[in-house]
Design a protein around this nucleic acid. Sequence first.
DNA 1: GGATGGTTACTCGGATAGGAGGTGTCCGAGTTCTAAGGG
DNA 2: CCCTTAGAACTCGGACACCTCCTATCCGAGTAACCATCC
Lengths: 176, 176
Amino acid sequence: MKLNEGVEAAIHCAAALAGADGDATLPASALATQFGLSPSYLLKHLQALSAAGILESVPGPAGGYRLARPADRITLFDIVVAVEGPQPGFRCMEIRRRGPAPLPASAYPKPCGINAAMLRAEAAYRAALRREKLSDIVDEFVVGADPRVVERACAFAARNQRPQKPSNNQRGKERR
Amino acid sequence: MKLNEGVEAAIHCAAALAGADGDATLPASALATQFGLSPSYLLKHLQALSAAGILESVPGPAGGYRLARPADRITLFDIVVAVEGPQPGFRCMEIRRRGPAPLPASAYPKPCGINAAMLRAEAAYRAALRREKLSDIVDEFVVGADPRVVERACAFAARNQRPQKPSNNQRGKERR
DNA sequence: GGATGGTTACTCGGATAGGAGGTGTCCGAGTTCTAAGGG
DNA sequence: CCCTTAGAACTCGGACACCTCCTATCCGAGTAACCATCC
């Protein structure tokens, strides 16, 4: 029942990336500084999100991460699965078949009822996670949080984001 | 997201205890043998269930465990919480407050929106677990499983259960 | 024959080692920006 | 003054230790049954 601690970091980073403009990217080092996390360790989770197709990575200087699709098409389920893995939390070890004088496998045509019940509950969990869209979280943050906090988040995004494919060369100014 | 492996053992044992008659008890050693588990390790989880008020323990010879209340008033939620602990799977570390130039605590009057979203999903999980009653699992097992398996389970219960407060002294025969 | 005391064996309960997976860190491959040099 | 080219710095990516928590085990406290003894 315990989730990895990296899930929280991954969601916060995804929300921060949702606040960036267009296809601009944010480097992992800036995200790590903003949230007071270890840069190396945060990269581990961002790579997982990238491998899952939630984020896109741009290498080289002026590179970083950005959302691979709009925030309204990213759910908390996507992020949790990317970090935790797709396997369900409850894994049936088929202990019903163990013990002395085990019956042949043909005696168990149906899946374990306990496993089925646990998976039903977990399906409800996954469905609820699928309803939580990243865009809703960002919107609720913007209108609900303290103005100072919102200002701080926007300043962070404005200060660290790096627009891609610069047509005009006035980009250098924006780097602090 | 990963649950302890002992949850499966705990549920199976609770279901087996639900098949016992009246206030009869089953020793942990018999349950461990039936499911091919380590007796010492199974005891750990049964003790957790006992501490949570789901099971009752009877010490001494002819002792063992039994359900503390009817099976229709025991849910999978009760068992999971007893084994896993009451804390939620997602624990907010408040990383939103970390980083350089942290704002004072007064800037965060509302709980973290990400934490709230995760807790909403987890509440759905818990509600679904609460709907899964132990009695339903047992009933579904009796009518749905292979007759050989049901027979094996009933024989196990009949062979190992120990009635409490024996009025007549014909108990000794039933021990294998 | 019945009651009684001691012994015994069985049970649960908590405290104690071992191992897998998450946590944290490091170094290497790749790419782009920069700047110097030449035309 | 513009183009080319080599260097360098910054980025992500994967491989490597450390540590916490789950897994597994042992021994001790307590209780009821059993049996021999006594009345």
